[in-house]
Design a protein around this nucleic acid. Sequence first.
DNA 1: CCTTGACCTGGAGTTAACTCCAGCTGTTAT
DNA 2: ATAACAGCTGGAGTTAACTCCAGGTCAAGG
Lengths: 129, 129
Amino acid sequence: MIISEVSEKFGISPDTLRYYERIGLIPPINRNKSGLREYTEQDCHWIQVILFMRDAGMSIELLLEYVKMVHQGDETMQTRKELLIEQRNQLVARIEELQKTLALLNGKIENYEKSVVPNEKKLKKQKNK
Amino acid sequence: MIISEVSEKFGISPDTLRYYERIGLIPPINRNKSGLREYTEQDCHWIQVILFMRDAGMSIELLLEYVKMVHQGDETMQTRKELLIEQRNQLVARIEELQKTLALLNGKIENYEKSVVPNEKKLKKQKNK
DNA sequence: CCTTGACCTGGAGTTAACTCCAGCTGTTAT
DNA sequence: ATAACAGCTGGAGTTAACTCCAGGTCAAGG
């Protein structure tokens, strides 16, 4: 897969893809004979994972640490697993927070529904003035 | 309530509170005789709402637009309501996304020894090419 | 052959949302 | 009454995460 296709597939810009590679978040992508990046399925899978994690609020810095640990090999396995568990716990907390916010939003919207009607009445009165 | 108390209560810095006021996200807070900000219950309530919205991913710019509309009065009510509904829809989608990510994380953690490690070894190999 | 268009690189610029600072004032504890 | 604190202001600085750019290569179509 060429960069424009990957960009399209994941909804991120080619610039961002190159940027991720530059900083080492994505491994160096293989090139075809004319020097263009050729993304493999594996590359795409890793990009997908990264995007999920980023969307879940994990910082690039932390993801880089994770990548670094992968390079350091098996001895960091436990730490990596702990990192993921920590992320999961934060994510669970985050989802709970968002659900509270959703309830708040729903309440506010309901309020508008209640007060839009009185508002329209006011408008009518104004008309009759 | 004085600024340090509000800061403590919501876990944001006094600087951020002043910043929010500066840009008009929070109304001008009343001062006591020596010029210090004195936050009312109402102020706190509004700060709470803002923080929830911020946490849910709503930008300051959009919140400012909302505030501006509140100032413009009742004629903007319908638009405000629509804005909130739009935000709710986005939030619902966001929560669903995060739940997917949570599932992915859980999978990664569960299978850590079985599949994630060998998979990442492959990635490493590729990188070393 | 020449133009067009996607991709390349290293480096600079942008954006949102804070965060810090210098120099000041009023309040409180010793 | 003097030193140590909070808080105040306008403005400058910081950070994360992109995003853009100039100047160049390469393959294909008319």
